[in-house]
């Protein structure tokens, strides 16, 4: 059986988030009020907070997950770890908080002011060295799998608004998708975010479902097939998701971005015992 391993302190899971920091990320995301860079950073910061919340018990945060965030394009042709230079246990994220921000959250109809941590700020600077970003991720995953050979397989979520400017990312993505634990291969989820108000393509099964643009097809090919054991959760949000669907949303607006992050992480939370 694949993608069935329990996640525990002895067998933690791994989340790696990759985020595009190229200049075009400064444009406003479709369906949102802010830039793609801002919304992507907010969404990942929120997701890190959610992972911490899932692991929080009354005695503190239990290290059920290791996490890492990689940004690419903050300077020409370069990529780097945004919180740490390798994945760290979730309970160590506390010491990497940039600042706390007060935000209003609606709980059962009441607006409550809550303090949320921010680990990294949005950047929209240069080009799109996605290959460099994926290469760092590959190194992180390689090292992690050596230490955690029987864990639930790593999950990599890549958020970008365009094609790589430093080569073909499919090659390194293929290599990453070949790295796995005894429970399955690494899963790559891709979210192509857009400033255009065009219909998104969610979890396509066939490449002809996405436009004939080079980077659209590339990202399709470098997205994992969603394992059957995870399809049910994807179907809760997108009813047309079928066996063989890729973990990919093309032309995603803000809502699609949030939903993809939710699906990609929630399927793994359910394995925590």
């Amino acid at each position: 059986m694949s993608y069935e391993s329990e996640i525990s302190r002895r067998k933690p899971g791994l989340f790696i988030f990759l985020v595009d920091q190229s200049r075009s990320m400064s444009k406003k995301i479709s369906g949102g009020k802010h830039s793609k860079a801002q919304e992507a950073a907010d969404a990942i910061n929120r997701q890190l907070n959610e992972i911490i919340s899932r692991c929080t018990k009354s005695d503190g945060v239990r290290p059920y997950f290791d996490v890492g965030v990689i940004g690419y394009g903050y300077k020409s042709g370069d990529a780097t770890g945004l919180i740490s230079d390798q994945p760290i246990p979730i309970n160590e994220l506390e010491s990497h908080i940039l600042r706390m921000e007060k935000k209003t959250e609606n709980i059962d109809g009441e607006d409550i002011e809550i303090e949320f941590p921010v680990w990294f700020d949005p950047v929209a600077s240069y080009d799109t060295p996605m290959v460099k970003g994926l290469t760092i991720a590959k190194q992180w995953i390689d090292d992690w799998v050596q230490r955690n050979p029987d864990s639930f397989p790593p999950v990599l979520i890549n958020i970008s608004d365009g094609g790589a400017t430093d080569g073909n990312p499919k090659d390194v993505a293929d290599q990453i998708m070949e790295i796995g634990t005894s429970d399955g291969k690494t899963l790559i989820w891709n979210c192509h975010i857009s400033e255009k108000n065009e219909k998104s393509v969610s979890f396509p099964k066939d490449e002809t479902e996405v436009p004939e643009e080079k980077h659209a097809r590339e990202m399709f090919e470098m997205s994992s097939v969603i394992p059957d054991s995870m399809l049910a959760i994807a179907k809760e949000e997108y009813q047309n998701v079928d066996t063989g669907a890729r973990a990919y949303v093309y032309n995603a607006n803000l809502e699609d971005l949030i939903r993809l992050l939710d699906i990609g992480t929630r399927v793994v939370y359910n394995k925590v015992k």
């Binding site: 907070n49 911490i52 919340s53 929080t56 009354s58 503190g60 945060v61 506390e94 706390m100 709980i107 409550i112 809550i114 303090e115 949320f116 941590p117």
Partner: peptide
């Protein structure tokens, strides 16, 4: 309570 415990315990 620490921020994360506080946020979760509201519910």
């Amino acid at each position: 309570l620490q921020w994360n415990v506080k946020n979760k315990s509201i519910r």
